[in-house]
């Protein structure tokens, strides 16, 4: 039995009076890649943002049910949300580096947690950029503004920035939708190399889901219609709606 790092139990979510997520029960296997697919507006982003409590930022949001991270309820008052977000990092759809130097972007997380030692920070920066294959490209420009990088480089920088916080889980919400095919391939390679990190990736791209993920969940109108191993979902879906969606009949 593989270990489950995140579990949701009867998760319901409303924005104001609109119910967005309905009775989601889903388990995320540790150190594997889980893809979330489904048509636009079905609640994928909302679901993913629930896992690191980023929906806290939206005042109209109301949640019932539970989400457990490593067996602990993330909504319980004992949970330190900054700690949770350090463990569950996020890469956004649009690359969003800070308007600071490349170095300061990567060092941002460690500094938040109190790391001041220059040498240690340098090591973390190098190591993180190395992991995303950016080190060779930028090692002489660490003082340059991160916004001067290309879109693909910026997204890899954002991934490196998240890796520098040593997360256990990374949530990726359509991380490649703003990127060219080459940069996309690079990000996908990276994901597969992060063997000791759990990844949840939202994607509209079926090929991407089959290429990178071990598990896939199909969402439709706020419900989790089907969940299973990626190869099963794409070759022998159990639900007619899943079959229609992956064969391109709607979406």
């Amino acid at each position: 039995m593989p270990k489950k790092i995140i579990k949701t139990e009867n998760l319901n979510l409303w924005f104001a009076n609109k119910k967005i997520l309905k009775e989601i029960n889903l388990e995320i296997v540790e150190n594997k890649i889980t893809a979330i697919i489904g048509p636009s507006g079905c609640g994928k982003s909302t679901f993913v943002r629930t896992l690191n409590r980023m929906n806290d930022l939206i005042p109209s949001c109301r949640i019932t049910g539970n989400v457990h991270y490593k067996g602990k309820n993330i909504f319980s008052p004992e949970t330190d949300v900054t700690n949770l977000r350090q463990n569950i990092g996020q890469v956004f759809q649009k690359p969003n580096p800070f308007p600071k130097s490349i170095f300061d972007n990567i060092a941002f997380g460690p500094r938040l947690y109190g790391e001041k030692n220059k040498d240690k920070l340098k090591n973390i920066v190098e190591e993180s950029l190395e992991k995303v294959g950016l080190w060779k490209e930028v090692k002489n420009d660490l003082a340059k503004n991160a916004l001067s990088l290309s879109g693909g480089q910026q997204q890899r920088l954002c991934l490196a920035r998240t890796l520098a916080t040593k997360p256990k889980v990374i949530l990726m919400d359509e991380p490649c939708s703003a990127l060219d095919p080459l940069s996309t391939a690079k990000i996908e390679d990276l994901m597969q190399n992060l063997k000791d990190i759990t990844i949840v990736i939202v994607t509209h791209n079926m090929q991407q889901a089959t290429r990178v993920s071990h598990f896939t969940g199909f969402f439709l109108m706020g419900k989790l219609i089907e969940f299973g191993e990626t190869k099963d979902i794409f070759t022998k879906p159990q639900n007619k709606k899943t079959e229609d969606y992956i064969s391109g009949k709607f979406g």
Binding site: R85, F92, F98, G109, L112
Partner: peptide, 21 residues
Amino acid sequence: FEFREAALAMGATNWQTIKKI
């Protein structure tokens, strides 16, 4: 908003986000 969001998603507190971003 993306800058605030990015900082908070990395585990920054409100005050850290305000001060640093």
